[in-house]
Simulated assay, not measured.
Amino acid sequence: MLLLTGATGLVGSAVRRRLTAARVPVRCLVRDPRRLGPDRVRVQIALGDLADPPSFRNALRGVTTVVHLAAAIRDQPRGSIEELNGIATWRMVQAAEAAGVTRFVFFSALGATAHDRTRFLRAKALAERAVIESAIPEPVVMAPSIVYAPGDVFMTLLSRMAIAPVVPVSGRGRARYQPIWAEDVADAVIALLDAARPDARYELAGPEVVDHTEIIRRLLAAAGRPRPLVHVPTPIVSRALRATEAILKSKAPATWDEAELMEVSMVSARGTADAQLLGVRPGSMAEVLGLEDDLLPV
């Protein structure tokens, strides 16, 4: 039995589809089974979330493999970024050890360190350490760069913002990424699950190094709404988003913690080597989004 967390997320949905198509016994830890769509009758459902340790201890019964994709990039009513990413993963690892799990696959992020400027990446670094230093026989960390897909939440938000004549960009927009398609990431996860002796760490990156500004231009072009971009100084963005979050709480359309992540580079010196080691050739943004060469920014 395989336990999948984050089964309704961008990568988790793609992984779930592959597992159910291959008839792999899957148990999904979810708060709302309706978000599983038709797959809710094809998987076992464990009700709960990362803020409720007893729920995932029960979900681990009879499980030999865990794929832990669930994450939070903003504070939630049920827990902070640190609690839901760092502490919850540490507790899940402890429960997995007690349950006799033999392989624990944890999704981190490129560049996660204990001294990072962002709360999210610091929490991910703490979680990485908990996984690697555990007594689980096969702990594996997968660290992707920014993950995207046509029609994802970020692309949908940009499309809505493009109703205006210009689209704002937080800061200088110079942070660099190697964007990787969610479907390529899911293929890498499935290949890892089939591997007899996986490595302890895989860095998943696309074939191009592009900055934040260029990513936004490409996503707007793919949505059919190219717009001029206006760079907004970071202090102004920080104050505006913090004020919005104070008023709207969890309903805020964006938070400073999310915006700050887009000012931290996530690149791998290994490029696409780890993905190719798993038999996956990541596609470029142009290939995935169907962009013509003359639509790409120069």
Rank of each mutant, 00 (worst) to 15 (best):
R31F: 03
R31T: 06
D32A: 08
P33Y: 00
P33V: 00
R35A: 07
R35C: 02
R35Q: 08
L36G: 00
L36K: 00
L36C: 00
L36Q: 00
L36H: 01
G37S: 03
G37Y: 00
P38V: 00
P38D: 00
R40T: 00
R40Q: 06
R40K: 09
R42Q: 04
V43Y: 01
Q44D: 13
I45R: 02
I45P: 04
A46E: 02
L47T: 01
G48D: 10
G48M: 10
D49E: 09
D49V: 06
D49A: 10
L50E: 12
L50F: 12
L50C: 15
A51F: 06
D52N: 10
D52Q: 04
D52K: 02
D52S: 03
P53E: 13
S55G: 05
F56G: 04
F56D: 02
F56W: 06
R57L: 15
N58V: 13
N58L: 15
L60M: 08
L60R: 03
R61A: 13
R61M: 14
R61D: 12
G62H: 11
G62L: 08
V63P: 03
T64L: 13
T64K: 13
T65C: 14
V66T: 07
V66K: 07
V66I: 10
V67F: 07
L69G: 07
A70Y: 03
A71K: 01
A71Q: 13
A71T: 11
A72C: 08
I73V: 12
I73P: 00
R74I: 09
R74M: 14
D75A: 08
D75F: 07
D75M: 04
Q76A: 12
Q76M: 15
Q76T: 12
Q76L: 15
P77M: 04
P77E: 05
P77D: 07
P77G: 13
R78Y: 13
R78D: 08
G79H: 10
S80K: 05
S80E: 09
I81T: 09
I81L: 11
I81R: 09
E82A: 06
E82D: 15
E82H: 14
E83Y: 14
L84E: 02
N85W: 10
N85S: 04
I87M: 15
I87Q: 12
A88T: 07
A88F: 07
T89V: 09
T89Q: 05
R91D: 13
M92C: 10
M92N: 05
V93R: 03
V93C: 05
Q94W: 06
A95W: 12
A95C: 11
A96K: 01
A96S: 11
A96W: 03
A96Y: 01
E97D: 11
E97S: 12
E97Y: 06
A98R: 13
G100K: 07
G100Y: 07
V101Q: 06
T102K: 13
R103Y: 09
R103L: 11
R103G: 12
F104V: 09
F104L: 14
F104N: 05
V105C: 12
V105W: 01
V105F: 03
F106H: 14
F106R: 02
F106G: 01
F107W: 15
A109T: 12
L110T: 05
L110V: 08
L110H: 05
L110W: 02
L110I: 15
G111V: 04
G111H: 02
